[in-house]
Write a protein that binds this DNA or RNA. Structure first.
Length: 426
RNA sequence: GCGGUCGUGGCGAAGGGGUUAACGCACCGGAUUGUGGUUCCGGCAUUCGUGGGUUCAAUUCCCACCGGUCGCCCCA
């Protein structure tokens, strides 16, 4: 037997409805915010991610699905969405369009070669948005508010929004140097990972769980103290807008993003829900001024976020939220006898053309078993056509909820059902 | 990539070196020969993740691999 590859999953009826529901909701809310869908390829030139995401990141160093095609080109299954969207933005010169900023959303699978565990798949699905072309702190607030709104509209309550500012390049460099200077004397006392982090990305040392009690941690220089005037003021404005929208947040000066392209605003939304497991991050995002330029476009600021659908559904489950998904069936057609069976094929087709949801038996089941099947399918009405009915040119229509049954002329059955269904919805 | 743990029917699960592998749910059939959700009766794993080893004998012991799961790393 061949199973789905490690870290991938099949989504089957029963859960695909949930996926469809959250995807529809996400798209609906994006339209409310005037974001438009962009669809980019699932694989790209490897170089795009090396340059976009950053050569030193874990994603590029050890998590990419990279392969050579038959033309010896190095391609990579996309590990995230932003690089591709920015590439498309540059390639199609969307920066030249009349209406700016360019507000885009996407939904689709991403791929990272990691050890799977709950909430972490090798193929996973992200919904995300990118707003390109505006350096207004209000759009940072807009993007954050959209992310929060998606979760809230789906019913999640136990959410924690964490924000930070990584500052501009100058602020980051100053802070980085300060961090290295601060920790260098303690190098030998830090864990092995941190000794490496100190060279590659000293910001991460602050995030370490092993060394969190080291006295040097408490006195470490904070990025917030190294923000220059402009960066500081930008962050203050973002916070002010969030306050005005009534969106609660906590500032975490140790919040670090895993990708190199981020600067200024960084944020993460986490689940507070009981028993959610080790992974609590539902979505992450931030500003990436400079990325468009890095990928060959004009100097263009940008900000976006991505959320994991797998984790979103986990959060819904952790909070015991049932999405309003209707799994019922309008009608189930039961035919008894050869002639009735033939008539049934025709009538079922006509009903379907009239937009009525209907199914019938194809297993040669006994009459009683067909009723059972109708019950299991949550059919609202069962239509019975047998020799008796055929002789009288009628169909018996049974309301499965209250058990009442009425005889209807065959010609009238479609308008009759349509009327019943309307009343039911009314 | 590292460590813990687990792998028995469609699902949940008991068992334990020796020959009919419990039980529950689901499913199928019958009681009820054309009307569901209840009840009763019956049926339903040549087989215990895969491969190899030990043994007269392995689903049960050993090893490897694969997969799930939890944690680390990291992230969405």
């Amino acid at each position: 037997m061949i199973n789905a590859p490690r870290g991938t999953q099949d989504l089957l009826p029963g859960v695909t409805e949930q996926w469809q529901y959250v995807e529809e909701k996400f798209k609906e809310l994006c339209r409310t915010y005037n974001y438009h869908e962009v669809r980019t390829p699932i694989f790209e030139h490897t170089e795009l991610f090396q340059r976009g995401v950053g050569d030193t990141t874990d994603i590029v160093q050890k998590e990419m699905y990279t392969f050579k095609d038959r033309g010896e080109r190095s391609l990579t299954l996309r590990p995230e969405g932003t690089a591709s969207v920015v590439r498309a933005f540059v390639q199609h010169k969307l920066f030249g369009q009349a209406s700016q900023p360019t507000k885009l959303y996407y939904a689709g699978p991403m791929f990272r070669y990691e050890r799977p565990q709950q909430g972490r798949m090798r193929q996973f699905v992200q919904f995300g948005v990118e707003a390109l072309g505006s350096a207004d702190p209000a759009i940072d607030a807009e993007v954050i508010s959209l992310a929060m709104y998606v979760y809230q509209q789906l019913g999640l309550r136990s959410l924690k929004l964490v924000i930070n500012s990584l500052g501009d390049n100058q602020s980051r460099t100053d802070h980085r140097n300060a961090l290295i200077a601060h920790f260098a004397p303690h190098r030998e006392e830090l864990c092995q990972d941190c000794q490496l982090r100190l060279d590659q990305n000293p910001l991460r040392v602050l995030d370490c769980k092993k060394d969190k009690d080291h006295p040097a941690m408490a006195t470490a220089p904070s990025i917030l103290d190294y923000l220059n005037e402009e960066s500081h003021s930008y962050f203050e404005q973002v916070k002010t807008y969030l306050d005005q929208m009534g969106i609660a947040y906590v500032v975490d000066k140790n919040l670090v993003r895993g990708l190199d392209y981020y600067n200024h605003t960084a944020f993460e939304i986490m689940s507070d829900a009981e028993g959610f497991g080790a992974i609590t991050t539902l979505s992450g995002g931030g500003r990436y001024n400079g990325l468009v330029e890095d990928l060959g476009g004009p100097e263009t600021p940008g900000i976006g976020f991505a959320l994991s659908v797998e984790r979103l559904l986990m959060a819904l489950e952790a909070e015991n939220i049932n999405l309003p998904i209707d799994t019922s069936l309008d009608c189930y057609f039961i035919a008894m006898g050869e002639k009735a069976e033939q008539k049934a094929i025709e009538l079922v087709y006509q009903m379907r053309k009239a937009g009525i949801q209907v199914d019938k038996d194809y297993q040669a089941k006994k009459f009683k078993a067909q009723f059972k099947a109708a019950d299991r399918l949550k059919a609202k009405y069962v239509l019975v056509l047998g020799d008796n009915e055929l002789a009288e040119n009628i169909i018996n229509v049974k309301n499965m909820e209250n058990g009442e049954q009425e005889s209807v002329e065959i010609d009238q059955v479609i308008p009759y059902i349509e009327q019943l269904l309307q009343r039911g919805q009314g």
